[in-house]
Each structure stands twice: as structure tokens, then as C-alpha cells.
Simulated assay, not measured.
Amino acid sequence: MSCIRFNTPAQRAQLARMAPAMKTAEEIAAQHPAPPVTESKIRRIRLLAADANPRIRASAASSYHLPDDVAEALAADPDAEVRRWLARNETVSCDLLRRLAHDDEETVRAFVAVNFSAPADAMAELAEDDSETVRGLVAWKASLREPAGASV
């Protein structure tokens, strides 16, 4: 016996009529709001950011609810993985992304280059970066914003 089911055109039409209307991502998200950010959550993020394990600190750096003072401290973290996650975070300040755009670690600068919150002046500097990878990512990101059919 086959596990593949073959519906007739009439069955497919009946299924289509019975199916609920497809909802947009915004409608679905509105039905399932995220829990509110509480002081307790912020305290947990602060604890994670101070952990001895760099992977735990990296987890804190990725939080969209990261307090500014904690982000500032993590920007100077000795572990590049922590700074990489911070550079990916689209909620950190533009000033912090500008600083990370000058990080000694190429991959940190690369993640700033693909962060859509990175300010234009930081992107201009990264376009002149010593790293071919970073320059390539800046060019790739710029190509995403060009209108369809625009010539390069």
C-alpha cells in the first residue's frame, strides 16, 4: 500500500473551500505577542553578560533587550565571538556599531557590514576595509537596496 494520497480535482476544490484564509505574518504575530520585557529579564541578561563562559556572554550580546551599558561592556570583551554576536545585534546603538567597525577581528567587522542598523558612515569606512571579505559584504548589502532593474 502506498502512503502517497492522490486527491481528485473535486476533493482538492473542496479542501480549498474549507481551508481558512491565509493570514499574513503580521496577523499571526499580533495573535501571539511576545511576553513583556520585565526587570527580571533585564537582570538575567546582565547576569549572562557577566558569566565566565564566553558562549553565555555571546548569548547575552544577541539579546534585543540588551541594556546599553551592558552592550558597551561587551564591545570590549576579549572573546571575539561575543563581539561578533554584538555586531549582529540590530538593536545596539549606532555609536557602538561604529566602534565595532574598527575591531581588530575581521569577522566582527564583517558582521557590522551586514547589520542593517549600521550607520552610513561606518559602512563607508567598511567599504574601504583592508579585508576583501568585509568589502565584498558591504558591496553585497548595497546591492540589496538597489531598485529592481537598476544597472550597476
Score class of each variant (00 low, 15 high):
residue 85 W to V: 00
residue 64 Y to I: 12
residue 62 S to G: 15
residue 87 A to C: 11
residue 98 R to I: 07
residue 108 V to F: 02
residue 81 E to P: 00
residue 105 E to G: 00
residue 73 A to N: 01
residue 95 D to K: 13
residue 115 N to R: 10
residue 69 D to M: 03
residue 109 R to L: 01
residue 110 A to H: 09
residue 91 T to H: 08
residue 104 D to K: 11
residue 57 R to C: 14
residue 76 A to W: 01
residue 100 L to A: 13
residue 71 A to Y: 06
residue 90 E to N: 09
residue 76 A to F: 00
residue 112 V to P: 12
residue 81 E to L: 08
residue 106 E to S: 05
residue 57 R to D: 12
residue 83 R to S: 05
residue 70 V to P: 00
residue 92 V to D: 07
residue 96 L to M: 10
residue 62 S to L: 15
residue 91 T to L: 05
residue 73 A to L: 06
residue 106 E to F: 02
residue 80 A to T: 04
residue 107 T to D: 07
residue 81 E to M: 10
residue 98 R to F: 08
residue 98 R to G: 10
residue 114 V to A: 07
residue 90 E to S: 06
residue 71 A to R: 03
residue 60 A to D: 06
residue 103 D to L: 08
residue 104 D to G: 15
residue 71 A to W: 04
residue 63 S to V: 10
residue 94 C to M: 07
residue 73 A to F: 01
residue 64 Y to L: 15
residue 103 D to E: 07
residue 91 T to F: 11
residue 76 A to G: 08
residue 74 L to E: 02
residue 80 A to V: 04
residue 98 R to D: 13
residue 64 Y to R: 09
residue 70 V to C: 01
residue 80 A to M: 09
residue 70 V to T: 13
residue 75 A to L: 12
residue 76 A to T: 11
residue 81 E to T: 13
residue 69 D to Q: 10
residue 79 D to C: 12
residue 88 R to D: 10
residue 89 N to C: 02
residue 87 A to K: 10
residue 101 A to Q: 05
residue 109 R to W: 10
residue 89 N to G: 05
residue 83 R to T: 12
residue 82 V to A: 07
residue 92 V to F: 09
residue 112 V to S: 04
residue 80 A to P: 08
residue 99 R to P: 00
residue 81 E to V: 09
residue 83 R to H: 12
residue 62 S to C: 15
residue 86 L to N: 03
residue 68 D to N: 07
residue 95 D to P: 00
residue 102 H to K: 10
residue 104 D to I: 01
residue 90 E to A: 11
residue 69 D to A: 14
residue 109 R to K: 06
residue 95 D to I: 00
residue 104 D to E: 15
residue 113 A to M: 08
residue 63 S to Y: 04
residue 96 L to P: 01
residue 85 W to M: 14
residue 106 E to A: 05
residue 92 V to A: 06
residue 105 E to T: 02
residue 62 S to A: 15
residue 100 L to M: 14
residue 100 L to E: 09
residue 62 S to D: 15
residue 111 F to Q: 13
residue 112 V to Q: 03
residue 109 R to C: 04
residue 94 C to D: 14
residue 90 E to L: 07
residue 115 N to Y: 09
residue 92 V to P: 08
residue 74 L to Y: 05
residue 95 D to Y: 02
residue 69 D to T: 02
residue 91 T to W: 06
residue 82 V to H: 03
residue 75 A to H: 07
residue 60 A to H: 06
residue 87 A to V: 11
residue 90 E to K: 12
residue 91 T to R: 14
residue 58 A to C: 05
residue 63 S to K: 11
residue 62 S to P: 05
residue 113 A to G: 13
residue 97 L to S: 05
residue 93 S to I: 04
residue 74 L to G: 04
residue 65 H to V: 02
residue 68 D to M: 01
residue 94 C to N: 02
residue 90 E to G: 00
residue 73 A to V: 08
residue 85 W to Y: 15
residue 101 A to H: 08
residue 83 R to P: 12
residue 102 H to E: 14
residue 78 P to Q: 10
residue 97 L to D: 06
residue 63 S to F: 03
residue 104 D to Q: 12
residue 74 L to W: 09
residue 72 E to W: 00
residue 75 A to P: 05
residue 87 A to Q: 12
residue 81 E to N: 05
residue 111 F to N: 15
residue 61 A to I: 11
residue 115 N to V: 09
